[in-house]
Amino acid sequence: MKRIFSGIQPTGNITLGNYLGAIQNCVKLQNEASCDCIFCVVDQHAITVRRNTGALKRSTQETAACLISAGIDPKNSILFNQSQVEEHIKLAWVLGCLTRVGWLNRMIQFKDKVGKSKDNASAGLWCYPILMAADILAYKATHVPVGDDQKQHIELARDIAHSYNFEFGTEFFPLPKAEILSKSFRIMSLCDGRKKMSKSDSSDMSRINITDNVDTIAYKIKKAKTDSYSLPSEASGLTGRAEAQNLITIYAALSNKSLDAAILEYGGCGFGRLKQDLTELAIEVIRPIGLEISRLMSNTDYIDNVLEKGSVRARALSKPIVREVYDTIGFLST
């Protein structure tokens, strides 16, 4: 049986891109009989960059509420927040001692995030991939659903797992595989079709948040950047037209159609009709989720209870795995 581990950071509003690119796919995986699913709100990863730490608890609850509202069932899957399970950090130190500095220096996301300010970046941001590996290996997860931008982190987790197995002459850790999701549906910014839709973008107009109301969704789609040409009738006509491709892609993803089918539907049309249909479809899909998030967040006791129960189940899985690692290393336990 496949054991799925998926982590999502509580770093702000969950966007339509997060939902279409990751969350709805996790819901589908959860409903596969052959999958054992673990979903983690990775709040310890969230402090690798400066943020309003006073809002972290609320963001953690909101992220959990979003996952539940989108269809993650905490009875069938394990849902918890990372900081409640100490095995993640305990394993990360051991794995860090097996990780080569050169491996971390090659991580593209670190370079992208720090730019020319490498010396001012936190050590936590640099070591982030080790903790991510520990998140996965603490449960002996076999598959990790990620986008293309996270694939390198899974490759590093495989290298670290292999390093441990080789060091101690064992096959203790499986080598996790990246389960690449939504290859055809990468959702980009509404302001710049060349940039990924991001909850950390300084402009709220660049994204549709799952919690946006009807008027806000309609306004953002109306103002979404376009070009002055009609929509093409085939995919090749989208070359060099990032914004057109993005809006067609969002429509295709929300309507569960292929990109080619969506293009045929709007070929030769202007953006007005597409934006109108996209607005109606986005509201139909997103608003029920947003309303359920608001209901859950009106009394967070339920969310806290779900995360507490989930952390108990997560510890039951990870504790014996990490204990065996500690025994193998030779740590004294009295």
Rank of each mutant, 00 (worst) to 15 (best):
H162G: 14
C191S: 15
V214P: 03
S198L: 08
L190V: 00
E155V: 15
D204S: 14
T170W: 05
Y164G: 05
E234W: 02
S203K: 08
F185M: 12
Q150S: 05
S203P: 00
A235L: 09
A178I: 09
Y219K: 15
L231H: 02
A157M: 08
K177S: 12
S200Y: 02
D227M: 02
D201V: 10
S230P: 12
D215R: 06
A224C: 10
N209D: 15
L190K: 03
E155Y: 14
A242Y: 14
F168T: 01
H162N: 14
K177D: 14
S182R: 01
S184F: 03
I187V: 14
I210C: 00
D159V: 08
V214W: 01
G240P: 04
L231M: 07
L156M: 15
M188Q: 09
I187A: 11
S163E: 15
T226S: 02
L156I: 14
L231V: 04
G237Y: 07
M205W: 12
K220F: 05
K220T: 10
F168G: 09
I154P: 03
Y219Q: 13
A178M: 07
L181N: 09
P232N: 00
S233V: 03
R194Q: 14
R194G: 07
A157H: 11
I160W: 04
S200F: 03
A224E: 09
M197D: 08
I221D: 09
D227P: 05
K196I: 10
R194D: 11
E234V: 06
T211K: 03
F172Y: 15
I154H: 06
L175M: 11
G237S: 11
D204Y: 05
E155K: 15
K195V: 04
L238K: 08
D149E: 09
S230G: 00
D159L: 12
L190G: 01
I217E: 00
K177G: 11
C191L: 13
A218Y: 08
T170L: 09
D212V: 02
S184Y: 02
S233D: 13
H162E: 15
S203A: 02
Y164M: 04
D149Y: 10
G240H: 10
L190D: 00
L175R: 13
S202H: 06
D215F: 01
D192S: 06
A178L: 02
N213T: 09
I210G: 00
T216A: 07
D149K: 04
Y164I: 03
S228Q: 04
I180N: 10
F172P: 05
K222N: 06
F173G: 06
S182H: 03
S189R: 06
D204T: 12
D215Y: 02
A242K: 14
K196N: 03
E171K: 15
Q152M: 10
K199Y: 09
Q150G: 04
T226Q: 01
G169Q: 13
T239Q: 10
M205P: 03
S198V: 01
L231I: 11
S163T: 11
E243Q: 00
K223N: 01
H153C: 12
N165S: 08
P176D: 10
N209Y: 09
I210T: 00
F172N: 05
S189P: 06
N209C: 15
D227Q: 06
I210E: 02
F168I: 08
R207P: 07
L156E: 14
S203D: 06
T170R: 04
